[in-house]
Amino acid sequence: MRPFLAQFKRELRGFFLSPYVFVLLGFWYLLNGFFFAYLLRSPAIQNDLTLLPPYLFGNGLLVWLLLPAFPPLLALRLLAEEQRLGTLETLLTAPVRDAAVVLAKYLAACVFFLLFWAGVLALFVLLAAHGAILDWGRVLCGFAGAALVSFLFLATGLWASSWSGNLVLAAGGGAALNYLLLFVPALLLEAPGTLGALARGAHLPDFLDRAFAAGLLDSYAIAFHLVLAGLFLFLTWLRLAARRMLA
């Protein structure tokens, strides 16, 4: 447990000390702030503030345009950067399990990514401070759903980060995987038979829009995200462990 905690602390601290991470965060806040201000001008939203969480945490353009790209940009420092700097050899020859390294890195990234969504959550707090009546159940469920999708995208980003020391490949590969996860089911929604059923069962925007941002904690959606994230974490572990096992 100690090696895990040491690595977790080191990664979390590393995020807080990386200037480029704060550039990402600033960019994210800026775009979400503009989007928030734009939405508030809409008469429909002014009449019904319960429409706001689905836009900011669910099916809003920014969520689907930016969200697949941001987690891999954060995750690239976790393994690709270590390979590029040559620090991975020192890390993995220490008496620490590969699985503990993967989990510590992943959980640190997840905790840090909550800051991204916390900024959006703060916009709702700001609204409430100005006297708006909000449905906090929808807001917090929307926050949880957005965080869950982000955690899935961080897992794919971490796997892409394990491929090599090439940062562009790590960021680009992770983002490409995330866009595939997002758009391939969307393209197959109307497909007949099992394929269509599978696509509908794996359509991420639906989980956010119809479940979380609508104030529902959908156990299927939670399990789906966790299982898929677990699969990518397993692939990441496999990538590290294979180097030690494959003669």
Partner: peptide, 27 residues
């Protein structure tokens, strides 16, 4: 083990790095 091109995270201070490594080794 001291690898040929030993490297540590560039932003970490010496003391911080050694403390982290000692904890990583189970202390």
């Amino acid at each position: 083990y001291l690898p040929e091109n030993f490297a540590a995270p560039t932003e970490m201070r010496v003391g911080e790095y050694l403390r982290y490594r000692a904890e990583l080794k189970g202390m």
